[in-house]
């Protein structure tokens, strides 16, 4: 049964709802764990099968979004995370968490050596934006988190979500491997290359995305719930895919 570790500390702020969302998605347990506790006792992670990097403003994004958290995590926990990934476990990074994963080089991590190959930079509008929009999921993506999902209304809340790649070859490689997993459907809010809102790694077990599935916890979170019937909180379906993957494979 899936147990989820959720990173907290230093300005991460969407950790409570991510925990709640995972519990609603069927996780057996979800715990918020401070990065300093993880660093002090890395073996703590052995007990979990999913690791969540939530949204927020780690270190205020003062030196660039997610950058300082990426350095802190990588410097202290790279080995642990490599082991975690090698065991077939899952990782999700949302918004600031996505930025952290990208800057550590965990996404897309073509060559397995944690080299940063893509980035998330200031929106082309130059401002932070909180809106709901529609995203679609690449049916060819190897990502286990988005399996079977077609599209979804979901909120964005970021000032640095513009997805760019190191060079054209990197973008082509992402496309060729179908790692471009989450795509802005109705409008591109930040100038991301190819409307990319989220990518997976080559294993398909690590997902990073700018929109917030954990903010769509109940139908009443949807801005249109008074106007049309919102049957379910769609954001949970994405997290449930992760939980089900672990449960069905009995990964410990």
């Amino acid at each position: 049964m899936a147990k989820v570790a959720i990173l907290t500390g230093y300005g991460i702020n969407a950790d409570n709802e991510l925990k709640e969302a995972f519990l609603r998605a069927g996780a057996k347990q979800a715990d918020r764990i401070h990065i300093n506790d993880m660093i002090e006792k890395p073996e703590i992670l052995d007990d979990y099968q999913i690791l969540g990097f939530p949204g927020g403003f780690s270190f205020g994004d003062h030196l660039g979004s997610g950058l300082v958290m990426a350095h802190l995590f990588k410097q202290n926990l790279k080995g642990v995370l490599d082991k975690f990934i090698a065991k077939g476990k899952l990782i999700i990074g949302i918004c600031n968490g996505f930025q952290v994963l990208v800057k550590m080089g965990v996404l897309p991590n073509f060559d397995g050596n944690w080299t940063q190959e893509v980035s998330l930079i200031h929106n082309n509008t130059g401002v932070f934006e909180n809106s709901w929009l529609n995203v679609r999921f690449n049916p060819d993506s190897p990502c286990v988190w988005t399996k079977g999902l077609k599209e979804m209304d979901i909120p964005i809340r970021h000032g640095e979500g513009r997805f760019i790649t190191k060079d054209k070859a990197t973008l082509e490689r992402i496309k060729a491997l179908h790692l471009d997993t989450v795509i802005y459907n109705d409008r591109n809010p930040n100038g991301s290359e190819c409307d990319i809102a989220g990518i997976t790694d080559t294993t398909g077990r690590i997902l990073g995305l700018m929109p917030h599935p954990e903010a769509f916890l109940t139908p009443e979170n949807h801005p249109m719930w008074r106007r049309q019937e919102i049957k379910e909180a769609a954001g949970l379906a994405l997290l449930k895919n992760g939980v089900d993957y672990i449960d069905s494979r009995n990964i410990k």
């Binding site: 702020n13 969407a14 409570n16 709802e17 709640e20 969302a21 949204g55 401002v127 932070f128 934006e129 909180n130 809106s131 709901w132 909120p155 809340r157 917030h212 954990e214 903010a215 769509f216 916890l217 009443e220 979170n221 801005p223 249109m224 008074r226 106007r227």
Partner: peptide, 22 residues
Amino acid sequence: VRQYDHEVGAVSVVKPFVGKNS
């Protein structure tokens, strides 16, 4: 107003803007 995060915490039910086009 859209530059304010009005949804973090996932507790929002009626948002600053409503209607067909929000």
